[in-house]
């Protein structure tokens, strides 16, 4: 089996894995919200451009996006010469597409009656989105966002290909150093589960609890 010191060595990959995933999540959020607004509330030409963005990032493997940023854009744009930055950018841009899907269906889940009621009070479209739709959509979106964070943590492992020193890379170093084939990856897998499960589970439960409290569908 794997020794304690090896396990501690593996832990050195945690900061890279976590920071890549969380920064990518924040970028994805910053892209996903406005992208959803454009898809739902702007003239068709802009909406279809935003839809195209989503289709592209949903349809391409994230590894390909990462390689594109690192080897492709990195040739012209210095920031992407860093494997770490390329990994964050690739995951962040794709997360924008995924989060937009999550927010779109959450915003569409707010019943039309409430929107008509808000309109009858004389609220503007912007006010209706801000005060009626978004607060409820965030609650409905929580479980989906939990899965998205878990997905980012798992997919950050692709950054290993670019040479980022994440959990997967450390596990691979152990394999090479000790000629151990199963243990490093199993220990790495355990670390991933310890990070993904609590977050996804917490947001899932929080979402269900709030949905019940407010009687949301």
């Amino acid at each position: 089996m794997i020794s304690t010191s090896d396990f501690i060595f593996l832990l050195r990959g945690v900061p890279a894995t976590l920071s890549i995933s969380f920064i990518a999540f924040i970028i994805g959020f910053a892209i996903g919200i406005p992208l959803t607004m454009v898809r739902l509330y702007t003239p068709r030409i802009y909406a279809s451009m935003a839809n195209a963005y989503v289709k592209v990032f949903l349809g391409v493997p994230v590894l390909v996006i990462m390689l594109f940023f690192y080897f492709g854009l990195g040739k012209y744009l210095p920031p992407f010469r860093s494997p770490y930055m390329s990994a964050i950018a690739a995951l962040g841009f794709r997360s924008g597409a995924y989060q937009s899907q999550i927010f779109k269906s959450a915003m569409n889940s707010v019943p039309r009656d409430q929107i008509l009621a808000a309109r009858s009070l004389g609220l503007t479209k912007t006010q209706i989105i801000r005060y009626i739709i978004l607060p409820q959509a965030f609650i409905v979106a929580l479980p989906g966002l939990g899965s998205e964070i878990a997905l980012l943590i798992k997919d950050s492992a692709y950054s290993f290909i670019l040479g980022v020193l994440d959990i997967t890379m450390h596990a691979d170093i152990l394999r090479r150093a000790h000629k151990l084939f199963l243990a490093p990856y199993l220990a790495g897998a355990l670390l991933y589960i310890m990070m993904t499960f609590p977050i996804a589970n917490y947001l899932d439960r929080l979402g269900s609890r709030l949905k019940d409290r407010y009687g949301l569908r």
Binding site: P111, Q114, A117, S120, P135, I139
Partner: peptide, 20 residues
């Protein structure tokens, strides 16, 4: 129109309260 809508109250068939 929003200013006029505000002067025309509306009560719906299904309860349409803001759930949050």
């Amino acid at each position: 129109l929003n200013r006029i809508r505000a002067k025309i109250g509306f009560v719906f068939q299904e309860p349409s309260l803001f759930r949050h």
